[in-house]
Design a protein around this nucleic acid. Structure first.
Length: 223
DNA sequence: ATCCCGAGGG
DNA sequence: CCCTCTGGAT
């Protein structure tokens, strides 16, 4: 994708997903943090089946501290990766209570220091709960950034830096959410629906595919 | 690079 | 059956 195509891309994304937002259910920064911790390697839809009931029983970090590891695992078993997630949630809650008075701080360095919280999770909490411009690079954002030609990065950190450099800061959070929706609905991991994609004309993947098809038809014409 | 892991889609 | 899901730690 050329530099001049970036405003075009953002324009298309705004038409397609005018109200792109975080699809995890939450009522406050703490609930969002827990929901994002749970969402690793699983669909937000599945997380949303579990968290409303969970937060009704345990509204605040203090409330989770009465749970044993085994009890915490039972609460979130259906989500998968439940041993690590249960352990991380309990330790996160313990630290929020002891170190932050039970509040989630608006502080990137503190958040990434929590167990199970990496760059992606911290960025989602900062941007979604606190309105800080950020691009959380997850599997969708990474895949679409490569396909579109926004980056050739070999790490998600490098992808994030490339996106921050190329996209206007005011559009970081929106673009993050819009790319996720587009990745789920159109530019899927397997068999992307390029025929239905309004970004075709500016997408590197589509240009490559078009060349392949042209080459094949040329061969067939010769034979 | 590998592991964690259940649920859902193709 | 295999792949993927808003990753992170080792």
């Amino acid at each position: 994708m050329k530099k001049a195509d970036i405003p075009i891309m953002i324009g298309h994304l705004k038409e397609l997903y005018p109200d792109a937002h975080c699809e995890l259910l939450y009522n406050n920064p703490f609930e969002l943090l827990i929901a994002v911790l749970l969402s690793a390697q699983c669909t937000d839809k599945l997380v949303n089946q579990v968290t409303p009931g969970l937060f009704a029983k345990y509204p605040k970090p203090e409330d989770f501290l009465s749970l044993s590891q085994a009890e915490m695992e039972d609460e979130i078993r259906r989500i998968g990766l439940f041993r690590n997630k249960a352990k991380n949630i309990l330790e996160t809650c313990r630290r929020l209570v002891v170190e932050q008075g039970g509040q989630v701080p608006n502080d990137y360095d503190y958040l990434v220091g929590l167990p199970g919280v990496g760059r992606k999770t911290a960025n989602v909490v900062l941007s979604t709960a606190f309105g800080v411009p950020a691009i959380a690079v997850d599997t969708h954002v990474d895949r679409l950034s490569h396909r579109l030609g926004l980056t050739k990065a070999t790490s998600v950190l490098q992808t994030e830096l490339d996106l921050m450099k190329k996209l206007p800061k005011a559009e970081w959070t929106f673009t993050h959410h819009a790319l996720i929706l587009h990745g789920r609905r159109v530019c899927t991991a397997r068999s992307p629906k390029c025929g239905l994609c309004s970004l075709q004309s500016i997408c590197d993947l589509h240009q490559k595919e078009a060349k392949k098809v042209a080459k094949q038809t040329r061969k067939q014409a010769e034979a």
